[in-house]
Every structure is written in structure tokens, then in C-alpha cells.
């Protein structure tokens, strides 16, 4: 009897291992260790795949029109480009510019104000927001439990085909954590596989001297919260990080965004007020608005000559990672949705 049990146990393990491949994040050895790593957040190939299907599925919105990918398109480094503020069901407009989604494994606090402390809780925010997906995890779970495509894959991953809120949220987390962008020209230069041209080189020097304290290499952000001198929009009245901590010293502070893929993540800033990179550089050069919580680094502004601005932009364009944006495994999972 015991031998039979061991035999079936072994078969189960073998089958289990074959269909449930664990995967590792791939990134340059010079990068810091991610917060979400193999030990505390094991990634599984099948779960990442299923998470991708959920990410692209408009069933996650109340009227089945908006998916996560609607505002976080892979071809724009997982953000949107046509609106300053996020754009939801019934053409409603949110209050913040949708952030680009990549290298989240290195981010402790998520969202512009750091309101979300864990990747698995992240998706609840847009799902519930009335101006974004206007749904609830409860409604989504009810819809998906009637969808045979999901039932089949859930059954093959878990021992049953039950679709729960916990599983849906963790699957979305698996996909989002798997998104690593580390193959730009900058990365190739750093690993000795490419060279900056003269202009890019000058731009890199300017960057190191003026920008890298907040936009720290290699992730191009220290992911801290800072007031970067944007005058508060009187209509949006967004107090930023203070809403989360209720500390006046955090008023108007927002998370420093990564500059990776910045060529494709316009418009810029938490409210998408600038469409062009040159406008952003102009902001730091001569538009810093003084307020109590302004970051001390910016008190005098950061000044560049016209030529320096051109050089800086040339460098910033080397942070574009097209291999990340156009990777087939990040795109619309046609095979999944074509199933009956």
C-alpha cells in the first residue's frame, strides 16, 4: 500500500514539475537584488502566462471594455500615451498619469504616492476605481468562474479549477513582477557590448552630474518620494504622498519615476502635464515652483544651455528598450483568447 502511494506520489511530482516550471528574473549582475526575488516571490511560468491573459482581459472592467493593458500597453513600456490622465470606462478620466510598468520587482511601494505596499494588492486599485475599471474583484471572480478558458488553465495550475480573488490577484502580480527592462543601449554600453556616440556621452556626463541623485542608476530611480517643484493643479488638488502618511512634510511629494524607456512614456509627471522631454528639462531649468516641501536639491533649479539640453535628450533616448516593449511574451496572448 505504502509503495503504491510513493509510486503515485512520484508520478505526481514529476508531472507537477514539468507543468509548473519555476522561472527566475534575468537582469545584469551589477544590479541590486530585487525586493521580490525567487525566495520570497517564486515565479512560475504558467502563472506568469495566465497573469498575462488576465492583464489583457477586458472582463476585468465593469462593462468589459477596459483591460489593464488599455492604460498599460506593452508597446509604450506598459503605460499609455494618448492621455495626460488615465482613461477608464465610459471615457471617464482619472486623476493621475498611468505609470509605466517594468522593474516593479525592485519597488517597495507602488503607485505615485506609494499607497500600495505589495504587488498582489496592486490591481485592486484600478479594478475598483470608478474612473478606471469600475468593477470589483468579487464581480471579476464571478465572471471568470463562468469562463471555460480560465477554468481549464486554473485546473492545470492548481489542483482544482476554483477561481478566487486571491488567485486572480496573485496571478496578475506574477505577470507584473516578471516584467524586467534591462536591454537598452545604455545597458549594452555598461556591459561593454556597445558604445555611446559623442553626443550621448556628453549627455550621460550631464545626467550623472545633475540628475542621478534622484534618478539613480541602474534603475534610474531611487524610488523615493519627492516634491519636484510642480505647481499644484487647482482642479486636481492632489496632495500626493501626504494622503497616505497624513504627514504635512509629505505634501506634494510623488514617487521619482524611472527614466528607462522615457522616449515612449510621455506625457510626463504624475499628472501628465508635459508632453515633451524638452518641456521636462525646461521645468527643472526655470519653472521650479517653491513650496515648503520642495526637494532641497531643486531649490536653485538645474540649469542647462540649449546645446546641453539636446545632449541630455540624446542620452535619455539610449534608455529605450525595444526588446522589452516588443517581446512576444509581453504582448496580447492571442492563443489564449482564441480558445473556445
Amino acid at each position: 500500500m505504502r509503495l503504491v502511494a510513493i509510486f503515485f506520489g512520484l508520478i505526481f511530482l514529476l508531472v507537477g514539475f514539468r507543468s509548473n516550471q519555476s522561472i527566475e528574473l534575468i537582469f545584469p549582475s551589477s544590479w541590486p537584488e530585487p525586493i521580490y526575488n525567487g525566495n520570497n516571490y517564486p515565479l512560475n511560468e504558467q502563472k506568469v502566462e495566465l497573469g498575462r491573459a488576465l492583464f489583457f482581459d477586458p472582463q476585468l472592467s465593469s462593462d468589459n471594455t477596459i483591460s489593464c493593458a488599455s492604460c498599460h500597453s506593452p508597446y509604450n513600456a506598459f503605460t499609455h500615451v494618448d492621455h495626460q490622465l488615465s482613461h477608464g470606462i465610459n471615457d471617464r478620466i482619472g486623476t493621475r498619469n498611468s505609470p509605466a510598468i517594468f522593474n516593479l520587482a525592485w519597488q517597495k511601494d507602488l503607485m505615485w504616492d506609494g499607497a500600495i505596499h505589495h504587488i498582489d494588492a496592486q490591481a485592486l486599485a484600478p479594478i475598483n476605481h470608478p474612473d478606471e475599471m469600475g468593477s470589483s474583484i468579487n464581480e471579476i471572480v464571478q465572471k471568470l468562474n463562468k469562463d471555460d478558458r480560465y477554468k481549464r488553465v486554473f485546473k492545470s495550475i492548481y489542483s482544482d479549477d476554483l477561481i478566487t480573488g486571491e488567485r486572480v490577484l496573485k496571478l496578475l502580480g506574477q505577470f507584473m513582477i516578471s516584467l524586467v527592462s534591462c536591454d537598452s543601449k545604455y545597458d549594452r554600453v555598461m556591459s561593454g557590448r556597445d558604445k555611446f556616440d559623442e553626443q550621448e556621452k556628453r549627455g550621460y556626463e550631464l545626467f550623472c552630474k545633475n540628475c542621478s541623485e534622484c534618478h539613480k542608476e541602474p534603475l534610474f530611480s531611487d524610488y523615493s518620494f519627492r516634491n519636484n517643484g510642480l505647481e499644484s493643479d487647482p482642479q486636481l488638488k492632489d496632495i500626493g504622498r501626504m494622503k497616505v502618511t497624513q504627514n504635512r512634510m509629505d505634501s506634494l511629494k510623488f514617487k521619482v519615476p524611472s527614466l528607462r524607456n522615457i522616449e515612449f512614456t510621455f506625457p510626463y509627471m504624475h499628472d501628465g502635464r508635459y508632453k515633451k522631454l524638452t518641456e521636462v528639462i525646461d521645468h527643472y531649468d526655470r519653472k521650479i515652483h517653491f513650496s515648503n516641501t520642495l526637494d532641497p536639491i531643486l531649490e536653485k533649479g538645474i540649469h542647462f544651455t540649449t546645446n546641453e539640453k539636446v545632449d541630455l535628450v540624446a542620452f535619455l533616448l539610449t534608455l529605450t528598450d525595444k526588446n522589452f516593449m516588443f517581446a512576444p511574451e509581453h504582448g496580447y496572448p492571442k492563443d489564449f483568447f482564441d480558445q473556445k
Partner: peptide, 23 residues
């Protein structure tokens, strides 16, 4: 809370998880 989302009675489908912030 720090570990993110849990299941069973702690599944967010029960409406006891904040969405605009964590916890």
C-alpha cells in the same frame, strides 16, 4: 498585511480589503 493578499476569509472578494491603498 505586509505579505500582501491571502485567501479564505481573507480573500479580498469579501470586501474587507482597501483598494486605493494597501491593507
Amino acid at each position: 498585511n505586509a505579505n500582501g493578499i491571502s485567501g479564505g476569509i481573507l480573500d479580498p472578494i469579501h470586501g474587507m480589503y482597501w483598494s486605493w491603498q494597501s491593507g
